[in-house]
């Protein structure tokens, strides 16, 4: 069950991973995008950190909402509204259930609605979908997440900036799938599925 404590720890770890990997994320984004995914995510996570620090004794809903608003207003690229929508959906539904399997399902539905992407389009949906499916079966481990992100390499992009490259987008990892991989690695490390 998700608690404010776990979510705070999760965001702390995600902030650290983005700080470490921001150059790599932007590098991934260079051949098939606009080369700014790492910097955008860093700006977003700085906003999340500042936003969470400002809260006083927040409940889970306020915590998710602060994360969503920071990502929506700070990221700048497509990742902002997509990750922002994911956390907004979790904020909307966390009174009903605190189970990650349920909340991530709402988040994934929100991401798909916002971006219009399906499985196989070479986007973060290709990571979020197996995560949600495996959480439902209590089988989520880091390897599942990493394998899903690596699986975007051979796909041809149908959505996002990479789609303008058509067939030429194959052979590159999707940066959004990789940042989602860090998000779920952080989630597992924070004790989210215990």
């Amino acid at each position: 069950m998700l608690t404010v404590e776990i979510v705070n720890k999760w965001m702390e770890l995600f902030y650290e991973k983005i700080s470490e990997k921001k150059a790599y994320l932007s590098e991934l984004d260079t051949p098939i995008g606009d080369g700014d995914h790492g910097n955008n995510m860093m700006r977003g996570m700085q906003g999340v950190k500042d936003g969470l620090e400002k809260l006083e004794n927040p409940d889970l809903k306020e915590t998710f909402k602060a994360i969503a608003m920071a990502l929506i207003s700070k990221v700048g690229g497509a990742a902002g509204p997509l990750y922002g929508t994911a956390f907004l959906e979790m904020a909307k539904n966390c009174e009903e259930s605190q189970a990650p399997a349920d909340l991530f399902r709402y988040a994934l539905d929100g991401i798909k609605k916002r971006g219009g992407a399906s499985v196989g389009d070479k986007t973060l949906v290709d990571v979020w979908t197996p995560v949600v499916d495996n959480l439902g079966k209590d089988e989520l481990v880091v390897e599942v997440v990493q394998k899903a992100a690596e699986g975007t390499k051979n796909l041809v992009a149908k959505k996002g900036r990479a789609s303008y490259l058509g067939e030429r987008s194959a052979g590159h990892l999707d940066p959004g799938a990789v940042s989602s991989c860090y998000l779920f690695e952080s989630f597992i490390e924070a004790g989210g599925i215990k």
Binding site: G77, P81, R114, K159
Partner: peptide
């Protein structure tokens, strides 16, 4: 103009 503009517009 491009993709994320539409998503932010919808938000």
């Amino acid at each position: 103009d491009l993709g994320s503009a539409k998503m932010n517009l919808e938000l």
